[in-house]
Design a protein around this nucleic acid. Structure first.
Lengths: 242, 242
DNA sequence: CAGTTCATATAGCAATGCTATAGGTGATAG
DNA sequence: CTATCACCTATAGCATTGCTATATGAACTG
């Protein structure tokens, strides 16, 4: 109809799907709508993408590029935890700007099969947390911290999307964000350790060294030596001794 | 087929829907499957529930009864924050035991239309947090705390459901849970206030008084006086002065 | 030019959610 | 005991869905 440009049909299908998805306001988008808008018939869709889900995966992949670009395109502030804060905010903003796309990416949960996107987003978050760990700012393993923060981040974003736009209160995001980052950070270990969530400086140092080692690819130890050494470090840094 | 008991068709439909949903392993459940299992034809379904969604809402309502029962059926431990912890764990367990039902209840997010369940769950959480606030254990408004905790709780549960059952690591839940509760609690205000997240004891006391007043339904002030008084309290308790 | 491969269209299938219409059942009124 | 009436259920079928078996065109290769 309106996308009859000179672009190849594959591109037109992608754009039509993305456009309809963005306007769908939550309603389902049919393959017929997509092919009609793309000026193409059904078999073309299945030839290029195999599946309706395949097409949506491709749309998601494009959306993920944009997401990753947003997550990386800011100068490191020097303070890794501050950067984590920005990643969080960027995640929420991405979800609120393109709620339908976000729902396909992060909201389409089914038992025992998690979207590939989640693993990628976790890796992105973990990467940043490694820097924090290397700077001795982390209280827990970067991977665990990344999973925890991302889970909360997704939960908050889904809640905000579900709310009427007029009622959306970003305070929810800010509050949850700071709660997660604070709990994961080593800051509290310097003050009075409340309850049992404070870790000793030994643990913090072990986590930092662990992260530094994994980042440096040092070859001063053989691979087998390194493996054992890392195992010990891991044992220390996951101990609950205060 | 197998549900041809003496139960009225409405009940048989509910049970059939619930049973198929539980076994569906994420796949869609069709009305024909449901009606066939219930030994009933299509119009019966639409007569009683109007809609496929109406039927599922009814299933969800039944599931929610169970959920609420789980959230309430434990003796208060005396420590409201400990009870919040149990509510969190119960929420996660409910999601892992009946993932499909949970996904219909909390995972079926669409823009600008949030499941009624979410509001109910928030109210449940807020109710418990009011006790914590009355005991001076809360750092923020109970409602905000409830929304924040529930968002994280849902996010974590969705993540766990999406993981292969063999890999599920409840550490994620425990860690996020304690992070949220700690951040929301007043405990940190007693120790060294890290960054700017510590609130003065005045703020904590104001929040506690606020909660106590709203719970007591005191009639020592006229309704207009009370309204103004609460407004002042709210202003105090939301101030960011440390 | 013949052959092969890729890309698109025609036509249609099975399954889906849902409904217009009619038939059957029980309770209540006369 | 019959008539009425509201309620519940079934027969049959519609429109839409995701998807495909088959055929046609185009473009390159020998």
């Amino acid at each position: 109809m309106s996308l009859d440009g000179q672009l190849p049909p594959k591109m037109r299908l992608l754009r039509a799907a993305a456009e309809l998805l963005a306007k769908s306001a939550g309603a389902a988008v049919s393959t017929r709508q997509i092919t009609q808008l793309a000026g193409v018939t059904a078999p073309t869709l299945y030839h290029h993408f195999g599946d309706k889900e395949g097409l949506f995966d491709a749309v998601v992949a494009a959306g993920f590029e944009e997401y990753v670009a947003g997550e990386r395109d800011f100068a490191p502030s020097g303070n890794p935890l501050e950067d984590i804060r920005r990643m969080w905010d960027n995640h929420v903003q991405f979800g609120l700007k393109q709620p339908e796309l976000y729902l396909v990416m992060f909201g389409n949960i089914r038992p025992e099969s998690r979207p590939a996107i989640v693993a990628d987003a976790e890796a992105l978050m973990e990467e940043m947390l490694n820097k924090a760990a290397a700077a001795g700012q982390l209280n827990v393993q970067p991977r665990e911290a990344a999973r925890s923060i991302l889970a909360a981040n997704v939960g908050v974003t889904l809640m905000l999307i579900a709310e009427p736009a007029a009622e959306r209160n970003l305070e929810l995001s800010i509050m949850t964000r700071d709660a997660m980052i604070f709990a994961v950070s080593a800051a509290q270990a310097e003050g009075a350790a409340p309850e049992d969530s404070g870790k000793s400086s030994v643990v913090v140092a072990a986590i930092a060294l662990n992260a530094a080692l994994q980042a440096s690819h040092s070859d001063q130890l053989s691979s087998s030596e390194l493996k054992l050494f890392l195992e010990w470090l891991h044992r220390i840094s996951t101990s609950t001794s205060s």
